[in-house]
Simulated scan of single mutants.
Amino acid sequence: MKRLLPTLVLSVAVLAPGTTPPALARSAPPPPTVELHDALRPVVAAGAPGAIALVAAGRRTRTAAVGTADLGTGRRMNAHDHVRVGSITKTFVAVVALQLATEHRLHLDDPVGRWLPGVLPYADRITIRQLLNHTSGVPEYFDKLLQHNATQPGAPQLRHWEPRELVGFVAGEPPLFPAGTGWQYSNTNYILVGMIIEKVTHRRLADEVDRRVIDRLRLRDTTFPTDETTLPKPAARGYWDLGPGTAPLDVTEYNPTALGAAAALVSTTDDVARFYRNLLTGHLLPTPQLTQMLTFVDHDGGLGYGLGIARIPTPCGPAIGHDGAVPGFATNAYASPDGRRQVVIAANLFPGRQAQTQEESVSTLFCGSS
């Protein structure tokens, strides 16, 4: 069943060049809850069944939810609903890799072949750092996975995948460019980073993310699932937009091993905001490693990508964080460089027509949260 197969964003979602968010100046500012609802309503009007927003500035946190979490039952969206946060997973995984570098258990400039001999024909010519910042040239595996699943009977979206199988989809292809000479977002990079973490620690990646990040920050609503195809309650259902005049398709349930270290994480807007706040204020990494994480490779006119973290321009300055999109869910999470302000918006539709509107709402709330 091809349209039940998982997909995910293969590039970092960003504000469209030249996009100007609605004016923020008002003679009498509305109550904060009205402001958040105003930013979310266009996301639902653009097609998402429901949406959640969180804005945190200093010690003040505001949340709002609009629309529907479950089209089958009519349950309303709740600000505490769990969602799949997709490629926000990459920042968590990068933190673990940088912690291991701090402990001198690996070096960011180690060749991939040192830890994963033979995984790729050119593994000795790419480094862990180049995987983390997408300058490795390793091709994207996900298109191949989708093509494979389209030929399979039954429910291939529920099948378990080993990381080496995912890398195997592109192991026979040449690199997109010599390592270090270009930039191209590739989920395969993070599948490889996850494999290296497991090789270094002799533990499952999920266990390392739990121990080093989730448990450390007490992110009680965040999980790194392996074969769990359902979401913890309360949860929004996730939907795929099949086009005008057609009801969205429920794609909530699938096996997250197809996403692994690239995009498997499940969380809430509150936990995601807390994660980026603690990361950027130095509670997860020593200053030298955090500085390396925030050393950005510039690409696509003003955009930047560090080690598992992105930088986007907004009308009020740069925002740092990540976007995540997997079947049924799209999440945008950004913070000020000092970590004092966070904005997170999650919607339960992907692919969907609301993506651009959602990005504009993030910019509007980010610039209005100071």
Score class of each variant (00 low, 15 high):
Y122K: 05
Y122T: 01
A123Y: 03
A123S: 11
A123T: 13
A123N: 07
D124C: 12
D124E: 11
D124F: 06
R125T: 07
I126Q: 14
I126T: 04
T127P: 00
T127G: 01
T127N: 08
T127R: 07
T127H: 02
I128E: 07
R129A: 14
R129D: 12
R129T: 08
R129Q: 13
Q130F: 08
Q130K: 04
Q130N: 09
Q130S: 10
L131V: 00
L131M: 12
L131H: 07
L131D: 01
L132Y: 09
L132A: 12
L132I: 02
N133C: 10
N133L: 00
N133R: 02
N133I: 10
N133A: 13
H134E: 02
T135L: 03
T135G: 09
S136Y: 06
S136V: 02
G137Y: 06
G137R: 04
G137A: 02
V138C: 00
V138K: 02
V138T: 08
V138E: 03
E140C: 01
E140Y: 02
E140M: 00
Y141Q: 00
F142D: 10
F142W: 02
D143H: 11
K144Q: 13
K144N: 12
L145I: 02
L145A: 04
L146M: 06
L146Q: 05
L146T: 05
L146K: 12
L146A: 13
Q147K: 15
Q147T: 07
Q147E: 14
Q147I: 14
H148A: 15
A150K: 03
T151W: 01
Q152S: 14
Q152I: 10
P153A: 11
P153N: 02
G154H: 04
G154C: 09
A155D: 15
A155E: 15
A155P: 13
P156R: 09
Q157N: 14
Q157L: 12
L158A: 07
L158E: 07
L158R: 06
H160Y: 15
H160P: 13
W161S: 10
W161H: 15
W161N: 06
E162V: 15
E162S: 15
P163I: 13
R164W: 14
L166A: 01
L166P: 04
L166S: 04
V167Y: 01
V167T: 06
V167I: 00
F169N: 00
V170L: 05
A171D: 11
A171H: 08
E173Q: 15
E173C: 06
P174M: 12
P175V: 13
P175I: 01
F177D: 03
F177C: 03
P178I: 08
P178L: 08
P178F: 07
P178C: 04
A179W: 12
A179D: 09
A179N: 06
G180F: 09
G180H: 08
G180M: 09
T181D: 11
T181S: 03
G182H: 06
G182T: 10
W183K: 14
W183R: 06
Q184E: 15
Q184W: 15
Y185I: 10
Y185F: 09
Y185W: 07
T188K: 01
T188N: 11
N189T: 03
Y190M: 04
Y190T: 08
I191N: 05
I191T: 06
L192M: 12
L192F: 10
V193L: 05
V193F: 08
V193A: 04
V193S: 01
V193E: 02
V193D: 05
G194P: 00
M195K: 05
I196C: 03
E198Y: 06
E198G: 09
E198S: 10
K199Y: 11
K199W: 09
K199G: 13
K199V: 15
